[in-house]
Design a protein around this nucleic acid. Structure first.
Lengths: 197, 197
DNA sequence: TACGTTATGGACGCTTCGTTCAAGAACTTC
DNA sequence: GAAGTTCTTGAACGAAGCGTCCATAACGTA
């Protein structure tokens, strides 16, 4: 060992993430990140490499957090699976309508960079697939509990719900109000195939 | 009159739009636009003002074109309304899966700028509302023709379809393949309430 | 205490950015 | 053809971009 780091890596990464989140990749300068993290250029480049490298690191962490969040919200016992699904999607609708919130970083980064940066597009795809997986697991629990038609294709339905999830995010960005986003979500949930009784 | 313009305004705007479309607002330089349009800086600034002004002009035109396209695809006689709806959404799914296509400019601009530029967010919202309106009209035609349950709320369903439309765009950006996007679309269409028989 | 190693902070270089400007060209009107 | 107006070209400018470098500081080890 030699001289130890004076900054906390995690909080520095969070500050950098928030900058990218707010102003996008091209719109964020390394000077702004240096100011936000409180790091000098030397520390910044020494610890994280260049701008692209830093973004990849930040983005990777964020994608993992997104997947974890989906899993945490959606997994659990069968009895309350449908309730969790409803809460997850309606919560998302409410969050997307918040004016302060600057939307989802995955959506923003994918829109800006996916076509130019294969690392980003691959990471985005994996993230979506994993969220869909979490949704699939939840829907299967719903089926076991009799909330969803047992013959339905859970994976297909999960794909649709993921799509709705991403669409809500897009509409929220444009300023669609909360009640609209929530009622769209409810319409989507109402369209799920219910079991015969 | 004095010296006439040597360039075609529309094609210059299209070239500018394509640049913004490809590399985003912050990622596009006026030099790049000058090169793409073939205009000198003087002409560029003289004709369109600054960067932001030019983007607003380009974006406005594009939003109108988007709305027109939705209306053109979705309006018509009642008999083929559902067929047109299916074609519109499936066509969109296929287009979004095209790797060459750089996604929807409305989505990209909204993601990058909506939170910082009220002109953009307002224009995006109006665009979405008008596409939803086109979808609503189509669904009402479907109801008259007996393809959709007559008691269903067409506006609610249109909101859901708009959301799916935007979600498909988001997933396509990440690289989701065509067959997946199409089958999600089909699942969404299958979830629409059919009339009792 | 001396030395090697890593971290820090900011000045620096080079490039690119958005925008302005001056000189000249093309047109209309008188 | 002279005057007036608008358009074109491209150089120039200040600001800001990314990344490097260096003197200094703070540790471990000998």
């Amino acid at each position: 060992m030699a001289r130890p780091r004076e900054f906390d890596e995690e909080s520095a990464l969070n500050a950098a993430r928030d900058q990218f989140w707010m102003t996008g990749y091209a719109g964020t300068s390394m000077d702004a990140i240096a100011a936000a993290t409180g790091l000098g250029k030397g520390s910044l480049y020494g610890a994280f490499g260049g701008k692209r490298e830093l973004f990849h690191r930040v983005y990777d962490d964020h994608c993992n957090a997104t997947i974890d969040s989906a899993n945490r919200h959606l997994s659990g016992d069968d009895e309350q699976a449908f309730e969790r699904l409803t809460a997850y999607l309606l919560g998302h609708a409410t969050a997307c309508a918040e004016r302060r919130q600057h939307g989802c970083l995955v959506a923003k980064a994918t829109a800006e960079l996916a076509e130019h940066d294969e690392v980003v597009s691959a990471r985005s795809l994996i993230t979506f697939e994993n969220v869909q997986l979490a949704l699939t697991g939840n829907l299967e629990a719903c089926q076991r509990n009799g909330d969803i038609h047992p013959a339905a294709d859970a994976q297909q339905l999960a794909g649709l719900l993921l799509t709705v999830h991403r669409g809500i995010e897009a509409l929220g960005k444009a300023g669609t109000d909360e009640s609209t986003l929530r009622s769209i979500t409810e319409t989507a949930l109402a369209g799920l195939p219910r079991p015969p009784r």
